[in-house]
Simulated assay, not measured.
Amino acid sequence: MRSLILDGGLATHLEALGADLSDELWSARLLLEDPALIRRVHADYFAAGAGVATTASYQASLPGFAARGLSAAEAERLMRSSVRLAAEARDEHGAGLVAASVGPYGAYLANGAEYTGAYDLDEDGLLEWHRPRWEILATSGADLLAIETIPSVAEGRALARLLRETPDVEAWVAYSCRDEGHLNDGTPIEEAAAVFADIPHVMAVGVNCTAPRHIPGLVERLRGGKPVVVYPNSGETWDAADRRWLGLADPVEYGEAAASWPAELIGGCCRTTPEHIRQIREHLAD
């Protein structure tokens, strides 16, 4: 099976190149302060073998930018620029796709809620929170939307409702999971995947921002439905209290593991680098 190789951790590589992301906007901060560095990160991932650039819009939102004193028009311009920067890197590389990142409500909260699904909004509230950014990114010129790191089935249902409203927008959906069978909110992965089963323009359903050791079990539970997308983290764990990563991960071991995942789209999430993607490419080619 030939898999489409995705990119790796955008923020991880930005930090490796010297960016300071220690605020609530995270990588979206660079859309305002250093867009050229974002374009370089996309270029580095394409050079490493990625076929997709995932934009720096994961943490971006109208209320998040408003808290920085930006108008709605300025926030929209920055979100659209995330797609433009990825497209410029893609065009320079000569091939590839641009996936506009639609991160979870928990990323805006910046309190670790994307790792638990413990939200203060219900499904209807989540729908209305996502809608303004959705309308921007769905008309941004991206090849598809990357709906990612979704920790709860309620948020999945809200985003499915938006997808049904925009049948001309292709997307993949990736949940974040706490073990080999359940979302971070405890919902069985099979139940969560079924939310998107009848939406034809969802190209793949799977998981991201999840420990690599859980991927084989999760993929097994997802097989038989839509194509599967997986891009776990490096295996390190995030200490939300101290805002730091714990543990180490080896790119070669990551690439070896990725070669065993029977998924149609494979990449990396937090703490993965261009070297992780290069190792995925090399091991999938063996």
Score class of each variant (00 low, 15 high):
Gly117Val: 07
Phe196Trp: 09
Pro212Arg: 04
Val202Ser: 12
Ala56Thr: 09
Leu246Val: 13
Trp245Met: 12
Glu236Gly: 07
Val230Ile: 13
Glu165Ala: 15
Glu264Ile: 11
Ala75Asn: 06
Gly225Thr: 11
Asp34Val: 04
Pro262Phe: 00
Ala197Gln: 14
Gly94Trp: 08
Glu123Tyr: 07
Met1Tyr: 01
Asp122Cys: 08
Arg244Pro: 10
Tyr115Val: 06
Ala241Lys: 14
Thr12Ser: 14
Tyr119His: 08
Arg84Thr: 14
Asp23Phe: 01
Tyr58His: 12
Leu183Val: 07
Ala100Cys: 05
Ala160Asn: 10
Val230Met: 02
Asp286His: 00
Ala67Asp: 14
Arg39Trp: 01
Ala100Ile: 07
Gly106Asn: 04
Val230Lys: 04
Leu222Val: 04
Pro104Phe: 02
Arg281Asn: 02
Leu248Asn: 08
Ala89Cys: 06
Asp7Ile: 04
Asn184Tyr: 01
Thr166Trp: 13
Asp286Thr: 03
Val83Phe: 04
Gly112Arg: 08
Leu265Cys: 08
Pro232Val: 10
Arg244Cys: 15
Glu33Ser: 14
Lys226Gly: 11
Ser22His: 08
Leu37Trp: 10
Pro274Thr: 11
Glu135Met: 05
Ala142Tyr: 05
Pro262Lys: 00
Gly268Thr: 13
Leu30Ala: 07
Ser260Ile: 00
Leu85Met: 12
Gly156Asp: 08
Pro167Asn: 14
Ser101His: 02
His13Met: 00
Leu159Trp: 09
Asn184Thr: 00
Ala50Glu: 11
Glu148Arg: 07
Val228Pro: 11
Arg80Asn: 04
Glu148Thr: 09
Ala158Lys: 06
Tyr108Thr: 06
Tyr119Asp: 03
Ala11Cys: 13
Leu4Tyr: 00
Ala142Trp: 07
Ala19Arg: 10
Leu85Trp: 10
Leu248Tyr: 06
Asp286Leu: 01
Leu17Ser: 08
Gly125Asp: 11
Ile38Cys: 09
Tyr175Phe: 15
Ser22Leu: 00
Val173Pro: 02
Ala241Asp: 13
Phe196Ala: 10
Ala60Lys: 03
Glu76Lys: 05
Val173Ile: 13
Leu97Thr: 08
His276Asp: 15
Ser260Glu: 12
Glu170Ile: 00
Arg2Met: 09
Ala100Thr: 10
Leu137Ser: 04
Ala118His: 08
